[in-house]
Design a binder for these strands. Structure first.
Lengths: 261, 261
DNA sequence: CAAAAACGGTTCAAATAATGAACCAGAGGT
DNA sequence: ACCTCTGGTTCATTATTTGAACCGTTTTTG
């Protein structure tokens, strides 16, 4: 692991429940030496990626990130283009919908929306990276994204998020093949207990999936009717998202999706 | 300059007019060896800070930035808190207003708004870092930010953005002192030709300025009336911004501002 | 209230990782 | 068919990163 990766990984420890992180905590989180972490923090701060609270000495995410995000959104306004489609689908289904983009061997939430019409709801953290083998989104990415993802993933043992997470390599391969032939991924409590979800790929300017769109439903509320409705609605919405991103759905998947609808 | 800084600096070459950058162009922009740049790009991409267009082979900003920006905004929603104040002031004055935060020895735009009621308007690029000695915002930061900023800046020769930029160290020192005593910075065409601007500091949880608020006006439109109106309105708005950020205006500056109003 | 633990931060020799000149391979262009 | 411009790779040399030990404060705690 290069120095750059080590430093950038420090940024991933922040989350809404963890707004400010001190030196010692970074050390335990990252498992690296204190001096190393400190120098990385200093350098990240000098570049505006972190800023230090002068009182508590803790670090938090800095303004450079906002600046770059503004540039990215201007160049490639994925978020603002996709958000309305996510909201519409969430309202139609009355369930949580999210679109995520691939970030290395994980998925990074781009935006999400929850209709909030039910008493129970799925907790979704936009700060959290989604694993590929434990989520419906991830399966969709494995099935329609770059080929190397699956083989890379199988190189190491699969980590279980719940007791339902697929950890057997052969089972994962078969599941991915099933998703490839059906065009929609479904996972029951693979990432969070009591949450089931459907996922489909979305495409950028290439033939490989660049991201995914998914619906997450509390398992208790997952009726047969929803199991019919969600894939159809998801396919339709994902097609629109793909178009908004300037991409095209590969012909073979388009045929599968037409049959499913 | 450490490896991390070198890599992160690569991200700063992106701008709305420069959405995608190739390896060779990065090499010329950064002046570093091709192999070095390439490895840095690969590592940034592996962490989601960049993504590569598989057809053109060019790189663009990646999804990790959006994810982190979402976290930062949730933790410290500066942008969303400040935006309405910026819009209101811009509408009141009919001119471009922006709020920027300090990012090392530069200012990083947080948000801006232009009332767009005039035929001519100031071009403002949220991707561009603002120098401290050439902008009204920068002078306000030098005057009320950390002390080391001015001395650090004077260590190297001052770069001229226009023929009106202050490049003489003594003149800069005097100007900063003037800003300290008056509470408001004014610069005429110091950064862009035909643009004049006023700037004031905004404060975070500390006694040092964490950012600035500024109004930029085409010089041709800068009447005596505007020169009276802008500082007063700016002081009022900056006080509100400081409050929104959870900060306080230092007592001595508060007194100066009261006299000015 | 004093001892001690915890925290942020620094130092410097040792070791590892970054570097860059030279080298591939493919895509256009002439 | 040739040249040139692109992105990308290699490997010995070099310089930067590394981390155990150390320092000075702050905050627990017996």
């Amino acid at each position: 692991m290069g120095t750059i990766t080590k430093a950038l990984n420090l940024l991933n420890y922040f989350s809404p429940s963890h707004p400010e992180i001190g030196l010692t905590e970074f050390r335990t989180l990252s498992g690296q030496d204190k001096a190393t972490v400190h120098r990385h923090l200093i350098e990240l701060a000098a570049n505006g990626f972190l800023e230090q609270n002068p009182i508590s000495k803790g670090y938090r995410l800095g303004p450079a990130i906002l600046r770059l995000a503004a540039v990215r959104e201007r160049l490639f306004p994925a978020r603002s283009l996709v958000a309305p489609l996510v909201e519409r689908l969430a309202s139609n289904l009355g369930e949580l919908v999210h679109v995520s983009l691939r970030e290395g061997d994980h998925l990074s939430p781009l935006c999400h929306h929850d209709a909030l019409i039910h008493g129970t709801r799925v907790y979704f953290d936009e700060a959290e990276l989604l694993p590929l083998h434990a989520t419906a989104s991830g399966l969709a990415m494995l099935a329609f994204g770059p080929d190397h993802l699956l083989s890379d993933l199988l190189a190491d043992p699969l980590e279980a998020s719940t007791q339902f997470t697929i950890t057997d390599p052969d089972e994962l391969k078969q599941t991915v093949e099933k998703v490839q032939s059906e065009g929609v991924a479904f996972i029951d409590q693979g990432f969070e207990l009591h949450v089931s979800s459907f996922g489909v790929p979305v495409f950028g300017d290439l033939k490989e999936a660049v991201g995914t769109m998914a619906v997450a439903v509390p398992t208790a509320r997952m009726t047969d009717e929803l199991k019919r409705k969600i894939p159809v609605a998801l396919i339709e919405a994902a097609t629109e998202v793909t178009e908004e991103l300037g991409g095209t759905v590969p012909p073979h998947l388009r045929r599968i999706w037409l049959n499913a609808a």
